[in-house]
Design a protein around this nucleic acid. Sequence first.
DNA 1: GGCCAGGATTTAA
DNA 2: TTAAATCATGGC
Length: 282
Amino acid sequence: MQKIVFSSEFFNIKDTLECGQIFRFTSFNAGFLVMSEEKVAYCYEENSFTNIICEDSDRDYFYNFFDLDKDYSSIYSRVQQTNIDILVNASKMGKGIRILKQNALEMLFSFIVSQNNNIPRIKNSIEKFCALYGEKKCFLDREYFSFPTKENLKNCTEQDLKGIGLGYRAEYIYNLIKLIENGLKIEDFNSLSTIKLKEELLKIKGVGPKVADCVLLFGFNRSDTFPVDTWIEKVYKEDFLGKEKDREKQSKWFVNQFKFDAGYFQQYLFHYKRKKEEKDKN
DNA sequence: GGCCAGGATTTAA
DNA sequence: TTAAATCATGGC
């Protein structure tokens, strides 16, 4: 076993997991189990440090996965320099959020499922997808399933996919599986510029601007993107008093303003807006 | 029972 | 080119 210990000032595991960038995690003991590809880590906070427990062979993977080489204090200080109230408040509330460096294909599947859907249901569908086609694994006496590989998906049918709560998105997922069988390798897109990479993603059925932006940000580590969903559109209209109606134009406005900080700032804002609404209900 | 969820596609104007 | 209708499904 390996243990990574990292100051929790800029690494709050709960906020990092709950800001909507990852769907494969679950409460476990005093913290969370986090799944990625076929791997898993147990993460918990203790005495102002975030601890990551994983197999020896996965140590480097999770060090990179949690982006532990990046200096988030400099991102945080650039937020303060903007003097934009909501952004400063959002960064203070989500100071410990990090953007995970996840598997690109896993992100593509996940965010196709996410369209016009809510997070609990997305999590549920992806969990069932892994249980149906993934491989059973065990870690700390706890069972989990790997994310299906191309080989795992060989005998997949559209009918099976409809049985795991995907709704009309089952057709998109099935189509994507067929594309992969026929040789699509989205990892190869990594050599492209962000603009070109987005164009390639948009060719896939079920992938629009927002889904593409999420795959770029969470799967390809492109921070010059700004996914606009229903929550961020609210932020744009209510807090930035923006007038554009088209979400892609809203996204471009943010990217143009924040450049390579856009993706990080977006996560602060998304997290803030959702938490605030949750609080206002009570 | 209508509205909403990390929207995209299809069809109409 | 932009606007509206349609797409499953569970929670509230």
